[in-house]
Design a protein around this nucleic acid. Structure first.
Lengths: 341, 341
DNA sequence: TTGTAAGCGTTATCAT
DNA sequence: ATGATAACGCTTACAA
């Protein structure tokens, strides 16, 4: 028993096929009575429109493709999750694809557009190396989340939702400086060769030190750029090295909560205390950091808002091609993992 | 500039449209020379087949729809993530949809099949209440992960990948019993009215007690069935209540690592120690539990394997309609959050 | 080996 | 207000 098609509805309700289409889509007009007969038939046959036929005809889908780099980060997962709800709420569907650190997300985006025919692309957590041509040839609206295209790119070609990575990381570092810390470690990794939110955060760290007259010491920064394993593992390992090399270090700032958790574990298992011996602050605002013991300070990014603005931006572009570039505020959350030195 | 279609390829390479189709799909035959000319044109025009047209005609896609209940659980996220890679590796694409606790996943599955036309459905984390008709009317292969259909359902109608929830939870409880604990709390929630992995785990807890001559005390089990918030919050709140009502409780078993983390936080913030005052064991095997302080014991489910078997099962069903029902082993991981009483 | 033509289930343009 | 009818881009008999 085949699924009901628009033809079946037409036959059962005794109207023409185009009338059914009109009723279903609210386009054109139809008499009240006809409408009811059609809807009745729809219910009876449990009719669901065939998306493929619809998309083929309309040359446009209602499918938004989401490309995520390093999806194993709980923070990015949260954003994706929030987007999901919003996308469904708006009547769209969401296709998700994970992009490894070694793949070129823009290239993948182009392939996906051709093959899967999404109406738009959202990219989460990528690098800054795109060109005008990239966005032009994409063919569908594109929203960048948590990162920007480089400044050479025409901002009318895409939308973006970001935070001020430099300023926020500077804030975290200055928080430690204000508490009297001078030997402040930094756990940092860069997953690609281009500029990323991570490199910007490192800049923020350096700026804070410089503005407060503290010499930048590379020995206080985790140097691995070839990060393997998860953020937890990375934070754990890097913290061990940092502690071994810098007995005088009294605080550590990290570019992600997962790394902060790994670092905290390293501190605690080495018999030191948080915050009495070493103060710790993370970045992102994932839930589990709040339940860690001790609860970890962090720069909390507004994940829900970011998702909201991203979807709004996408809808805007879809409807009237208007792009937007919004920079959201983060907040420093104090939970007690830092103290005066 | 429209995207190239099969017609453009046909024109440019000077052959018929069906020849192009044949060459592209490797069906039928074509002369070596023709093949090359076609491929040449494909490259030149940067041709990518239109998925919608293809799917419409074939009445089948290469898209696997994944339905997840409570996707905010890191363990389920991990499974989804693993599936992603495997699905792409096999040349399929993956559509993901989150199902809230109040929605009927089977109903949603049916809608998705009609509207989105996936070639198969994978359901993660649902309830046991389906019928033969459900699977029959679905119309596409269905694989259940982490849970089963009730025993009344013909097992030739679907595949499944599970663990033995009763036995594993029994194992966790017996682990505590073997350490000498007698007053063992249980943090448990059931997100729907039917039978779920969670209810089975509660059974395991009860069985262990019974077999070891320990009376079952409802006061030691968290009673909320209307869970709100995340597992962390839930575990935290329930543990507070449990501790307040049972000063003599020396151990707690939980049905999820996130709850164990929340419970651990409650224990530590109340000034008690783990494991000296209270022993804790989680369930699932999420990474962060290993980096908690102290690291938490757990029943680790083989997420990667579960994903692997699920995808394999799906491919099997797709190719020769063969169903399979596999029950995987979990492992008790000792990390030091439990000790002799 | 190759091309013609008939759909797949829609939407949209026309007449009516 | 309504109903034929022509696409949309593809696959697949069926002919040639």
């Amino acid at each position: 028993m085949m699924n009901a098609t628009i033809k079946d509805i037409a036959r059962l309700s005794g109207v023409g096929i185009s009338t059914v289409s009109r009723v279903l889509n609210g386009s054109g007009s139809a008499s009240k009575e006809t409408k009811e007969r059609v809807m009745e038939a729809v219910r009876e046959l449990n009719y669901v429109p065939n998306g493929n036929a619809r998309n083929l005809k309309m040359r446009q889908t209602s499918k938004i493709m989401v490309l995520v780099k390093s999806i194993d980060n709980p923070f990015l997962q949260k954003i994706v999750h929030e987007m999901q709800s919003l996308i469904f709420l708006r009547g769209y569907t969401m296709d998700i694809r994970n992009v490894s650190n070694f793949e070129d997300e823009m290239k993948i985006a182009k392939e996906e557009v051709r093959a899967g025919n999404p109406c738009g692309i959202i990219m989460i957590g990528g690098t800054y190396g795109y060109t005008n041509e990239d966005f032009g040839s994409l063919g569908v609206p594109c929203v960048l989340v948590t990162f920007e295209a480089c400044s050479a790119v025409d901002r009318g070609l895409y939308s973006s939702v970001t935070i001020d990575d430099v300023a926020e990381m500077k804030r975290a570092t200055e928080y430690m400086i204000a508490l009297g810390h001078r030997r402040i470690g930094c756990i940092y990794s860069n997953n690609s060769d281009g500029e990323t939110p991570n490199t910007l955060r490192l800049q923020g760290y350096k700026q804070a030190l410089e503005e407060h007259g503290i010499a930048y010491d590379p020995g206080l920064v985790s140097q691995r750029t070839d990060m393997w394993g998860s953020g937890y593992v990375f934070g754990f390992n890097m913290m061990k090295i940092l502690m071994a090399n810098n007995p005088d270090m009294t605080a550590v700032v990290t570019i992600a909560d997962v790394m902060a958790i790994g670092a905290a574990k390293a501190i605690l298992t080495s018999g030191r205390r948080i915050p009495e011996d070493i103060s710790v602050i993370g970045f992102d605002g994932i839930e589990v950091a709040e339940y860690y013991s001790p609860a970890l300070d962090t720069i909390a990014q507004p994940a829900q808002q970011m998702a909201q603005y991203a979807i709004d931006a996408m809808i805007q572009m879809l409807q009237n091609r208007k792009t937007s570039h919004i920079v959201l505020e983060s907040s420093l959350v104090r939970r007690g993992s830092s103290m005066k030195v």
